[in-house]
Design a protein around this nucleic acid. Structure first.
Lengths: 214, 214
DNA sequence: AGATGTTGTGAAGAATCCTTCACAACATCT
DNA sequence: AGATGTTGTGAAGGATTCTTCACAACATCT
């Protein structure tokens, strides 16, 4: 069952939204401010949060990165009555996945929720690569260089990659490309160009996270 | 020198922006439509593109993911005269890094450019400090289990660790402890209890980061 | 002292990972 | 067509990593 957290200080609206969500067969919990919400998120995993931007105490804009930090995989839909393009951009830059302008139709809300839950589920099933595969992919210097190069460069053809990495024996690169393909980090398009899959992108981001943090 | 690509069908605006950027000491190239821009991006790496949303031919909104795919690390600043929150959200969801509403002050443009270039540069510093040791330490299931256990548990004696991990042969654990010690992730105190060093703590945090994000 | 449990070493072999080599299919250019 | 460059396979062997085994120093308990 999909778990949803509704963060809004307006009692009526919060209750209404929760009733609608439960009618739609989703499980929804209320939180009347951001701090309570963060506590709930600490204890329990949610698939998605609906977050009001304007609240007493910690406001929504501030809360976004805190929620992101606490629950990196949880979808965040920002809601606001005072909308502007600048505000929307800021919310997205801080990590919101969508941004709804009040008053919205229930249909619009449900559409956004359904889409975000589905994308999350898609990424989830793409995540079935286990930690072991990840480390299998990352456990070799050349493979890490390939990942980083493709992360920076995007689509690249085989020999260009070989030359960029300054490897004399191209079959060596081939061997490691095969490993990366088997692990699901890279793929080839119709023109035989290599690029990262999204799980490969995430792996490359992990690499940069590690190199930053070690 | 920072390379910038200005994509706009309005000749006057394009020229003006390029002049300003060059006065600021940046290198800027023009492209009057999205297809020309994609060709330029294929040939040459840019740090940042300024992208008009409304153009004949491939429009800006369509171009964003294409640019993203061709040049994943290039910053994209979307520009539009017809702004709405919905439009801004869509641009960000497709991969824009910022979204400016025309007419904008030159100062606002330069601020966004400077910020984006700086963040990009920050992410760039990928210095391959001995990542090899790190991965040496993390490249084995049992070693990862040991790290995670010590991260949760703190100081632990040898046989307690062996039993907690349910390994039948204690010398196996010993072997991996030795590796972890050589890499500098763990240490022993006077009572022969094992615990994480601070670099070991950081490694364990990387592990949990990875398991959250993959 | 003797029995039991803890902590550790070193070496041999197994398993895995990586490199190298020989070669081949295919595209592109002259 | 022939030459050149690109992309790829498979097998052999070398290198590294992991497991297992035999054993030993030391503490603790009875």
């Amino acid at each position: 069952m999909e778990q949803i957290l509704v963060i809004d200080d307006d009692d009526d609206l919060r209750t209404t939204i929760i009733e609608v969500l439960e009618q739609e067969g989703l499980t929804a919990h209320p939180a009347e401010n951001a701090d309570l919400a963060l506590n709930l998120l600490k204890k329990h995993p949610y698939h998605l949060v609906l977050l009001d931007m304007v609240m007493p105490g910690t406001d929504g804009m501030t809360a976004i990165p805190l929620i992101r930090q606490q629950a990196p995989r949880t979808r965040i839909i920002a809601m606001t009555a005072f909308s502007s393009a600048e505000n929307a951009v800021q919310a997205m830059q801080r990590g919101a996945d969508d941004y709804l302008v009040k008053p919205f139709k229930i249909d619009a809300l449900m559409l956004s929720i359904r889409q975000n839950l589905q994308e999350a589920r898609f990424q989830e099933c793409h995540k079935d690569t286990d930690m072991d595969d990840v480390f299998q992919g990352l456990s070799n210097v050349l493979r890490r260089q390939i990942l980083i190069f493709l992360h920076r460069q995007g689509m690249t053809r085989f020999m260009d990659l070989v030359r960029a990495l300054e490897v004399e024996d191209h079959t060596k690169v081939n061997f490691h490309l095969k490993v990366l393909r088997e692990v699901g980090f890279i793929e080839q398009n119709a023109h035989k160009q290599y690029s990262l899959t999204n799980s490969g992108e995430r792996a490359a981001e992990c690499l940069s996270f590690i190199s930053k943090n070690i």
